[in-house]
Amino acid sequence: MKILLCVPEYPPHHVGGGGPVFHALAQEYTKLGHEVMVIYGYYPTKHGFESLKQYTEYGIQFVQVPLLPTPRFTSFLKTVLPTGPWNLSKLRNIIRDFQPEKAHLHGYGLMFINQLAKIIVDQKIPYIYTLHGAPVSADKKGGIIQKVYNLYKHTWGKFILDHASDITAVSQYTIDNFSEFHPYKDRIRIVPNGIYPEEFAKQIDYNIYDQYNVPEGSTIYLSIGRIERRKGHDKFIKMIPSLVESGVDVRYFIAGQDNGYKQVLDSLSQELGVSERIYYLGFVSGDDKLSMLQHADYVIFPSEKETFGLVTLEAMASGTTPIINNIGGFVDIVQDGKNGIIVNFSRVEEYRGLIGKNINKDVMRGTVQYYNWKKIAINYLG
Rank of each mutant, 00 (worst) to 15 (best):
I227M: 02
K238T: 01
P183T: 13
G225V: 05
T130F: 02
R187D: 02
L161F: 04
T219G: 06
N207D: 14
I144F: 13
I144T: 15
Q172W: 12
K158I: 00
S171W: 08
N207F: 01
I227S: 00
P183H: 09
Q203P: 05
N193W: 06
P192K: 13
I188G: 00
A164D: 02
I167L: 03
P215V: 08
K158Q: 14
V191K: 12
A201Q: 15
P197C: 08
E228S: 06
N213C: 03
Y212R: 11
Y149H: 14
P215G: 02
K147C: 03
R189S: 13
T174Q: 06
S137K: 11
F236A: 04
N213W: 02
V148I: 14
Y129I: 10
I224C: 11
T155Y: 07
K235E: 03
N150E: 14
H233P: 01
P183G: 14
P126C: 06
K153H: 00
S165R: 07
K153V: 04
E198A: 10
G142D: 12
Y206F: 15
F236C: 00
A164T: 01
Y184V: 04
R226A: 07
I144Y: 11
T130M: 14
P197G: 10
P183F: 05
F159V: 02
R230S: 07
D234C: 02
R230A: 05
S165G: 13
T155S: 14
D234W: 02
Y127T: 08
S171P: 05
V148H: 10
E216R: 09
Q146S: 11
I227W: 04
K202R: 14
V136H: 08
A134D: 04
H182Q: 09
A201F: 07
G194P: 07
I220N: 10
E228K: 06
Y206G: 04
Q172N: 15
Q203A: 10
I237E: 02
F236M: 03
R189M: 06
E198L: 06
V214G: 02
L131D: 02
D162N: 13
E228W: 01
Q146R: 13
Y209H: 15
T130L: 06
T155V: 09
I204Q: 03
T168N: 13
F181W: 04
Y196V: 13
K238M: 05
I220Y: 06
R189E: 12
V191E: 08
F236L: 04
P215S: 09
I188T: 00
D162Y: 01
P215W: 07
Y152I: 01
R229D: 07
E216C: 02
Q211T: 15
I188S: 03
Q203E: 13
K158E: 13
L161I: 03
Y212I: 09
V214H: 05
I190S: 04
Q203W: 02
W156C: 11
F178H: 05
G133Y: 01
Y206R: 08
V148S: 09
G194E: 10
S137P: 00
A201R: 11
S171F: 05
I190A: 09
I160P: 01
Y152C: 00
D176T: 10
K147S: 12
K185W: 06
I160Q: 11
Y209E: 10
P135A: 09
D234Y: 01
Y152S: 03
K153R: 13
I190D: 09
V136K: 12
K235R: 14
I125N: 06
Y206V: 00
K124Q: 14
G157P: 01
N213F: 06
V170I: 15
